[in-house]
Nucleic acid binder design. Structure first.
Lengths: 345, 345
DNA sequence: GAATGTAATGCAACCGGTTGCAAGTCAAGC
DNA sequence: GCTTGACTTGCAACCGGTTGCATTACATTC
């Protein structure tokens, strides 16, 4: 009794028409009906017209699942992110969707909440019904990722694993520019407000800060904001001010924005007595004051990743690909000359 | 040659094991292997153990697509929103995902970009491979929605169609409270910065503003911000100031935030010489000054919608459901007493 | 007019699972 | 010892499409 026409929400008493019904009514075979939809050029125009007309009248729509089973192609891809609600992701998701749409693909979205176990669960659930996956900022360990990559085409965003196609938003140049910018403004002692330890982006940024600061003779302290959010950024303000630095560069814009709020609460004026730099440029000019930040065109990452996935799916892929997206510094109003002398109480 | 083991990214030369392989190796029938995974309680523990062990060794994973074909249940639902990048949606999406996850479902996400044609395309693509859909702020016309609802369980968010299960974020009380708040602060002439004409929420809010303003003898003008965004909000500032009102309530927080920026650019101090109220409370305290807004717990809408969808899918649904979510005013720092006298130049 | 080629359509196997029903096994009950 | 029933497993049909190959019809060529 698995196809009770009066339950399960499928039509009010009328069964969903299948290819066989259309075949019977139109007088052609199932094969012909199938071809009328998937390879009409094999048939007479007349036949196609007739079949489609009957199909329309019956309300027939080819069953995607059945098609997927016999062809092995389902036209689905999966995109897994760590946190939909982090403003870094929505533009990326949007771009990825758009690209997938153009190729006629549907996208599954998964939200791992930065939890590897959850991410693994999601991948497991998705992998059977997609043709390929994109993992953004994956927290899975390398072995797992490699295993999945043998089962399906797979593209990583902001995770650098040799042999796996990946799209990396290379913020190092932008971060270096930010440090240079601060140095030129006279800052000698700065803070890096760091993000998740397991994040490739965080390692990337932390190293870039260290390297460039060393080069220019700046002192850097690290202050954590974990998980990276408005709130943890705000909370970091006290510690940062207490440390006596005159500027901070944050793991991302959200943390920077929180930091701005935290500083405001402490009556520290930005940029007059303290400078703040963000990362990702996802908030635009909406902060107060408008944030100087490392702009990274994160939306592009989604677009490129799906593009690479597509070409990998169609088999037109030879070697491994390591696609880098560039970054640059956008100077707005949250950075200014170092205060002449910090009043240490 | 549709299953060429060396192409398509499926394993390095080794085919994906099917139920038949496991059957052959384990010595049991395909039926038994199937049951070992889907109804283990029908089998001896011993048998289950053995089958699973062989499956593990071979790397067998049940094929979701095949399962969906024979059972009619694919364990997928679709969620279509108008704009992932609008901060209203991410929390909603996240909540919906979470709820779906708990039920073991995968979610397809679609982005309609406020375009009915696009939305229709997406629904068409999804509907064949999901057990149910959630349409948030749908822009489809009623007839289409009704048609889809006969094919699959369907839940609407912020769209009020009789006979279709829907979740409505009722911002009217909050908006009324906002108008009352402004009236008490002495404002007599205010602006409503309106959103999409076809949006149920917009109609709801506009009416609530009118009603309450009339009741309190306030004058209201309408200024459009379309599509609703930071930029259109910013641009509306000039017109609003020119109109001589002393306060504005915006369609959503994003528009309100843009308005704040536009006002700042015009050197209008908020809340000293102008008051601004937002809607949705999706930005928290991150604006400058922190925004007085109508809080609506939009994340709940996602959770509730998927919950309703689930019960509808399991057939335990009798009549129609119209679930209302309440709203209230959150007073922060963007509203203040009306300026004693507006200097009209 | 027979041989050859080409285009349209049908046959039947297949994709990888699920499941109603029947068959077989074994212990308990009479 | 035979019947009964519970429990475990297998058989085979089925889900709704796709596709390699065979068949048929018809036009072309010699």
């Amino acid at each position: 009794m698995k196809r009770d026409p009066d339950s399960g929400g499928e039509g009010r008493g009328s069964v969903v028409p299948t290819i066989s019904q259309v075949a019977k009514v139109s007088g052609f075979s199932r094969a012909t009906v199938s071809r009328a939809f998937s390879r009409p050029e094999m048939l007479t125009e007349e036949t196609v017209r007739h079949v489609k007309e009957v199909a329309d009248r019956l309300g027939y729509v080819p069953n995607q699942v059945a098609r997927a089973l016999s062809t092995g192609r389902h036209g689905n891809v999966a995109l897994i992110v760590t946190d939909v609600a982090n403003p870094f992701f929505p533009p990326l998701i949007r771009a990825a969707q758009l690209r997938a749409d153009q190729a006629g693909l549907c996208v599954f979205l998964g939200n791992s909440d930065e939890d590897p176990a959850r991410e693994e669960l999601l991948v497991g659930r998705f992998i059977g019904q997609v043709e390929g996956l994109v993992l953004a900022s994956s927290r899975l360990d390398e072995a797992h990722i490699r295993r999945y990559a043998t089962r399906r085409p797979l593209v990583l965003i902001n995770r650098d694993i040799e042999g796996i196609t990946r799209v990396l938003i290379d913020t190092a140049p932008g971060v270096a520019a930010a440090i240079a910018h601060l140095a030129e403004l006279g800052h000698r002692h700065i803070a890096y407000v760091s993000g998740p330890t397991t994040s490739w982006s965080n390692q990337q940024r932390r190293n870039a800060v260290r390297r460039e600061a060393e080069k220019r003779g700046l002192k850097v302290i690290a202050v954590p904001a974990r998980p990276p959010s408005y709130d943890t950024g705000r909370l970091a303000a006290v510690q940062i001010i207490a440390s006596g630095v005159t500027a901070a560069i944050a793991f991302d814009d959200l943390v920077a924005q929180g930091l701005l709020a935290g500083l405001a609460a402490l009556d520290v004026e930005v940029p007059k007595s303290f400078s703040v730099v963000g990362c990702d440029d996802v908030l635009g000019e909406t902060t107060y004051p408008p944030l100087t930040t490392v702009s990274a065109r994160c939306a592009d990452a989604g677009d490129v990743a799906v593009g690479l996935l597509l070409s990998q799916m169609s088999g037109g892929m030879s070697g491994e690909i390591r696609h880098k997206l560039n970054s640059h510094l956008v100077i707005r109003a949250s950075t200014g000359p170092a205060p002449v002398k910090r009043r240490s109480r």
